[in-house]
């Protein structure tokens, strides 16, 4: 790390100093290209975010790539149904590292208002790791922009070496996740235990029901 005062002095002379980490993170966070992936109603708010009023392009998300091979952010906007879930996981697998997932809207977080449905997947985080959750039904465009900026801040804070390094620099972490198959009654498997642990409803000793998360 370079001393701040020295940095300022140097920059006045026209010499800019930075670390490789800062440069790397700045480059990635300022040009996050989302995948063109809208599922349901939240997609319309996502489109509104890219339009002239809320303009996501000024944050670096200039182009929404139709091909997953060229995208680094997947904004899962809308309900993920069980029929669509294998395709979502496949698309996630096809994205090259480093990749991020934003779960936009109540349906992508946990199934949302359609949670009781037999065809509704109760949250995309059952199969793929999610970085940010945006609550709302649908979330306002400002909420999506806030989430986008939060993701940018997170990327800026990433350390490239050490135990907290991001997933793509860690050879042990998987970057592809198994795709669920269509079973006779449900998807097989119903969720990915490496990615998602079921929160438990706890029943206390006295018999009155209490709930808590794990």
């Amino acid at each position: 790390m370079v001393d701040e005062k020295l940095k300022n002095e140097l920059s006045k002379q026209g010499i800019f100093t930075t670390t490789l980490e800062q440069l790397y993170n700045w480059g990635r966070s300022s040009s996050l290209w989302p995948l063109n992936f809208g599922l349901a109603c939240c997609a319309i708010e996502m489109i509104a975010t890219t339009m002239a009023r809320y303009d996501m392009a000024r944050f670096g998300a200039e182009v929404f790539r139709p091909s997953p091979r060229q995208a680094d952010l997947m904004i899962v906007a809308g309900t993920v149904t069980k029929k669509m879930a294998p395709q979502v996981v496949r698309l996630y697998n096809q994205m090259p590292e480093p990749k991020y997932v934003i779960s936009m809207g109540a349906c992508a977080i946990s199934g949302g208002p359609f949670k009781q449905g037999y065809n509704v997947l109760k949250g995309i985080d059952r199969y793929i790791p999610v970085d940010l959750y945006i609550p709302g039904c649908p979330p306002r465009p400002e909420a999506l922009l806030d989430a986008f900026m939060e993701l940018q801040k997170r990327i800026d804070r990433q350390q490239l070496t050490g135990a907290n390094r991001p997933r793509h620099l860690n050879a042990d972490e998987p970057s592809e996740f198994p795709v669920p198959r269509f079973g006779a009654h449900d998807l097989e498997p119903a969720n990915n235990p490496n990615v998602w642990k079921a929160p438990l409803v706890q029943i206390s000793q006295t018999g009155t029901d209490e709930s808590g998360s794990h």
């Binding site: 037999y118 929160p199 409803v201 029901d209 709930s211």
Partner: peptide
């Protein structure tokens, strides 16, 4: 029709 069994989390389960 019976839904496939699934873990459900609710803050006030009943």
């Amino acid at each position: 029709y019976v839904d496939p069994d699934d873990y459900e989390y609710e803050p006030t389960a009943h």
